[in-house]
Nucleic acid binder design. Structure first.
Lengths: 146, 146
DNA sequence: AGTAAAGATCATATTAACATGAGAATAACG
DNA sequence: CGTTATTCTCATGTTAATATGATCTTTACT
């Protein structure tokens, strides 16, 4: 559904929302916590900063923070920085021009679901995902229920 | 949503359902009609044959045919040959192990849509997509309304 | 001013998807 | 049996995503 870059971005933003309320968090910290390659995450966070989702501070004491409160950050604003959701991404058969006006064979069947997916990313916010099992390093055991 | 390989496969299967009822169709014919690289489509159709969706006949008069009638071919049986729909494909954040039992942060929010997507590919058949604007070469003008 | 801690940037490597080209294997048919 | 039309297979090329490593730049603090 999402590129691994977009997944990294989402997980990092969630981590910032949960742990970065008071002070900026460093790339290395987030990368270690989530098991994401450091320099790769660095570039991802940098792009999120360029896109206005995060702010970055260089130098000692620097790091990344969310610009807006989690309730004001739809998943789409994170994900669209890396994955295209426009045009032929929406057409199941990959036609450049696929619309109600000029539909592909699957158009009427796929349309509803496709719109629901768009709505999901537009309407779900980072805050909606907080308070659940926080995303940690995938494949790392996680002692459970007392 | 789908890899371009899976899209090619879907479009080719649709073409076979519409034009290959009486006789097997040749790779070159389908490739030309749909604007898909010939040898690439050849491999795709071969894999669909190995997977039991198509039958192939070599030699003169050969080509490809659907094994079952279009009503009996769910889109999933075409698509799953190329794109994985299992495991972490279903998890929005890319966790290997993401389930009701061990959910990621997005699990409860994404679950419903994810299941609807699965259902779509399982319940929609090739026959459902017939009788609409047939998929042709993308980006090719298509003389329209009289 | 010097130093350490951070992000920013550049060059390069790795991998998988997508694609092309040439030829081998198979089958029909005269 | 040879010719021709077709799929099948292998080798290779191209491109984009993913990842790594080295170095540059900025900032806070002493």
């Amino acid at each position: 559904m999402l590129s691994s870059t977009a997944k990294y971005a989402l997980r990092a933003v969630l981590y910032l929302a949960e742990h970065g309320e008071d002070e900026p968090l460093q790339v290395g910290l987030i990368a270690d916590a989530l098991g994401i390659p450091r320099n790769y995450l660095s570039k991802i966070l940098h792009e999120l900063a360029r896109s206005g989702v995060l702010v970055s501070a260089r130098g000692k004491g620097g790091g990344f923070r969310l610009v807006a409160p989690p309730q004001a950050v739809p998943l789409l604003s994170v994900v669209e920085v890396f994955d295209q959701f426009n045009g032929n991404r929406r057409c199941l058969l990959g036609r450049e021009e696929c619309s109600d006006h000029s539909p592909c064979a699957a158009h009427v069947h796929w349309k509803t679901l496709s719109e629901q997916i768009s709505m999901f990313f537009r309407d779900t916010t980072v805050a909606d995902l907080l308070g659940h099992d926080p995303p940690t390093v995938p494949g790392l055991a996680e002692g459970g229920k007392p």
